[in-house]
Design a protein around this nucleic acid. Structure first.
Lengths: 225, 225
DNA sequence: CTACTTTTCGTACGCTGTACTAAAGACGCG
DNA sequence: CGCGTCTTTAGTACAGCGTACGAAAAGTAG
């Protein structure tokens, strides 16, 4: 992983961004420096500046690359299915690239893939009969949930199934059953159970939102219970 | 704003964190450096290190301060009211300190205020009759939504009512009605309308989630429509 | 070959967090 | 008073950061 590339492929803006994504995935966003990026590509720092204006442009670029990995919803499909699968695709992309969600806050100039994505989302909802207002409401609600979930996932000290126990047990023991009884309860009875994976919570909240939207659209969404 | 403080109040860990929050609020999180913080307090950089181990501890500390600003939900109150008002309190805190949501991703060691907050949330839900599983589901869903909403709000290039128009109009004109018709539609018919404020979208998604939870609890939440 | 454009990179500057060390102030005790 | 000791404050220095500037190298056309 991340060895110095002996074969010097020709540089290009695309390759810079691709390597930047790889480096951030492997070593974290804080390890993504101009110097380390150049080294991983077998070049010198200043060479990169021929293809990007500055580091911010790299950050904007890799955020856009993450969006480009997410399959666009189809305006001709069933809106609920489309929203469900695009939500999972989005979350998967943000899980593959946990640094992306932290970057969203500071980047305010969306790239072409991001714009295409927004356009496809809006088209899908509008085509399904959502009013302009409801489209705005729904899109904001869905993305808030997805981004926030990814944010919480990225902040977890563990990841994946079962690994929570190893990390959490020593912490919980410090609390014993004293000051934070409810947290201990949740930990013992839920988080530390074999097979636990925070990622499994995703569908619950997503369906809460989709059910609510279905009801507002009056097209027979999932019934209560 | 942020003039050098002539009267040198005695230093302390609390004062360091308080000033750090102020400085981040005024000038953004990237302007919060050890040197600038020391200067705003009328001291020298290295003096701060007597009260905090390193900058990470400052960041952990100011995140915890944000949590401490959020009123705790009461386990004896009506759960839905408590969740509603704590959601708004949380969002308000994250709007006052937009840098906090970006910090959540990288901080994984919660402070005392954060732990108290979690404990109060869990207690309120459990006391209201939520099962352990449902408590975990509900908490994850609510916080995902709140954090994600705050994240999107922090990423907006404009803030507050009406100001969207000034920023968005020149951008939208570039798109004209060509490549992104749905985005232009939403902009013209919704975002650019007088009185628009993205913050108003918050209640919609929040109520979607709370309605869904009410239904699962079978205690007469808001009916559809 | 020359002339020109495209691409690469060496050096240097101001910024960052902070390790190490020293100095100054506070305070009790004889 | 002096003295030792602990607390608190700073000075200096170093490695690493993004990147401005300008020169060097490589590629291409005439």
């Amino acid at each position: 992983m991340s060895a110095v590339n002996p074969e010097r492929l020709p540089l290009s803006r695309e390759r810079v961004l691709t390597c930047a994504v790889e480096l951030a995935d492997e070593s974290g966003i804080s390890a993504l420096t101009i110097r380390s990026l150049a080294q991983s590509m077998g070049t010198k720092p200043m060479s990169l500046y021929y293809y990007v204006a500055n580091k911010d442009e790299i950050l904007d670029g890799i955020v856009d690359m993450v969006f480009s990995e997410v399959q666009l919803p189809s305006p001709s499909g069933n809106w609920r299915d489309e929203m469900h699968s695009r939500a999972h695709a989005m979350r998967a992309a943000l899980t593959r690239h946990p640094w992306a969600v932290g970057l969203l806050e500071s980047r305010s100039s969306p790239g072409p893939a991001t714009l295409r994505h927004h356009e496809a989302m809006l088209a899908t909802l509008r085509e399904a009969g959502f009013s302009i207002q409801l489209t705005a409401h729904a899109y904001a609600a869905l993305d808030s949930y997805i981004y926030g979930f990814a944010l919480q996932e990225a902040a977890l000290p563990f990841e994946g199934r079962d690994t929570a126990a190893e990390i959490t047990t020593p912490i919980m023991e410090r609390f014993s059953t004293g000051e934070y009884p409810r947290m201990v309860e949740i930990a013992v009875e839920h988080v530390l159970k074999p097979g636990y994976d925070f990622g499994d919570e995703f569908d619950f909240g997503l369906n809460l939102i989709l059910d609510g939207l279905s009801r507002l659209m009056g097209d027979g969404g999932a019934p209560a219970e």
